[in-house]
Amino acid sequence: MAGPPNKKQKREQYKNSREGGSTTELPKKKFYRQRAHANVFSDHDLVYPISPAHMNWASYYPAYIKPSDSKANPSTDNLAEDLRNQHLGRAAFPQLAQDVEVADIGCGFGGLLVALAPRLPNSLLLGMEIRTQVTEYVQERIKALRIQKSTEGLYRNAACLRANSMKFLPNFFKKAQLSKIFLCFPDPHFKARKHKARIVSTTLNSEYAYVVRPGGIVYTITDVEDLHLWMVGHFVKHLSFERVSETEQEADECVGVMRTETEEGQKVTRNNGQKFVALFRRLEDPPW
């Protein structure tokens, strides 16, 4: 048990005071801090859908729910689908008009997500974070921002959920669903023994290749040169990816955002640290 009891109490009080969901005030990070490392191999207490079809996105993107007209004139198709749903033990839930297309894996406190949401107004963005407290922070942050900018309708396309994306990425996304994946300042896992826990590895890249459509981009940034070389090495070695040229990389507006808007990026700037960026394009699968 970490922290003195009154700290826990204060957190609880703070979170209770925010409940109700109408506050426009951004949450304070100090009530949501959590140890920076999580064991990706342990089970945690994760909630994840059995498959992408079982995922109820409606509560995350309420503004994008497909207007349902199926109730008015139930076609046989829908009936069959409902029966199938029942058979598979899933409740029929509202569907979205479009799919999530951008994933920020390990989104942290959500700096990139919040910066990208207005810049990519036509895509749905999802932040995935393994730490409960931090996820809660981002969810509160987006909630508050949505209310703040309700007249402009901003931030409705951004959401965050708790997930271990190293294990359960295919439970959330269908094949070739994503156009962009962001891997920003991942845990470097310096020890060789821990290298399998790194977010980039030859074997894990296959899963990124599965969820990213051909032509889609995986963005990486880190302040650890060693990790940068590791990520470049593993992506270049993987036959489903090629590295994006420097000119094209610098022309991408997301790269600038990634450099300056992520919490970790700002921290590195404060410490006069280096930032290493690399982009990788998903190639078409060869015929076979």
Binding site: I50, K167, E207
Partner: peptide, 25 residues
């Protein structure tokens, strides 16, 4: 152990995942 059944291509394209059979709880 995490409920997945993964279908990958055979050698020499074993790095390409063709799909998943997801349904176990």
């Amino acid at each position: 152990r995490d409920e997945h059944i993964r279908v990958s291509r055979g050698i020499p394209q074993a790095h390409i995942i063709e799909g998943f059979c997801l349904g176990h709880k």
